[in-house]
Design a protein around this nucleic acid. Structure first.
Lengths: 146, 146
DNA sequence: TTCTATGCAAAAATTTTGCAATCGT
DNA sequence: ACGATTGCAAAATTTTTGCATAGAA
């Protein structure tokens, strides 16, 4: 899992291949939940790597500007979180109570987006959709305390 | 437009009515786009009021915890933005290029949410949906430069 | 009066920036 | 070799917190 062909992706996007970019991209590729800059930092340190936090921010900015990564904000502490922009795009269901994130596979908005383009004259490039609720485990906890 | 019955709303939610809370709530009620803490601050100063920024943060936290206000993040600079949680809920279409925000009136997710509850066993409490794209004005600008 | 909310100033946390050194092509 | 990228440290922003004072019920 450590080797990779991210080089090809980087070349295709006109950015230089550096060890740091490979590390960050690899972490994002292997995470199924969006990560903040600091979380990425912690993960790479745990793997035995090291990197300046400002480098991580700069790398993420580059990835976002190239459309490789999506920046959003679903964390409770308003930190920006990042995830690779897969072809099949994913949405999330976040527990209000414990913060757990469930990844959803399908998107209910295909048709709607098109009608919105017609109505607004925007060229729609993307959307963010997140659901919030109480997960089954927390429901039990809450009921237990009643 | 300055007078209001926010007192009733506050009483109903078990929070004390203070001048500061009325000012902040009024600004949120009269804005059709989500505002950051600092934007709220600037607006109230322009109206001749004054308030500590930390008070604004604390007031917003209270409003969010009572479900009166929704905190999200669609600004480019990852600042948290806040808007009143209306009965009719609104989504937004944000221009990638100039940051302009268009308010959308209807929500395409009514039915989907219910099926998601069944599938995941979550009690879904809310969702956030934002669209991004290029607005007509920016399209012209961009084409002009080609 | 009692408890909560506010202001202020200081701290914490996140993100950005300048500059010299290093690395990729 | 050249230009882009990184690290470091410092700055800029955003958000949180402690404590004394003021305000609501």
């Amino acid at each position: 899992m450590e080797n990779n062909n991210y080089r090809e992706i980087f070349i295709k996007n006109n950015i230089k291949t550096t060890k740091q970019r490979e590390i960050v991209f690899d972490i994002l590729m292997n995470s199924n939940v969006p990560l903040s800059a600091k979380e990425i930092f912690i993960k790479l340190v745990k793997k035995g790597n090291n990197m300046s936090l400002s480098t991580i921010y700069r790398i993420l900015d580059v990835f976002v500007s190239k459309g490789l990564v999506v920046k959003s904000n679903i964390s409770k502490n308003n930190k920006a979180v990042y995830e690779v922009k897969g072809m099949e795009h994913k949405h999330h269901l976040v527990c209000d109570c414990c913060g757990k994130i469930l990844v959803l596979d399908n998107c209910p908005l295909e048709g709607y987006e098109r009608s919105l383009e017609e109505k607004t004259m925007f060229d729609i490039t993307s959307h963010k959709l997140e659901f919030f609720g109480i997960c089954p485990e927390c429901k039990i906890k809450i009921e237990g305390n009643v």
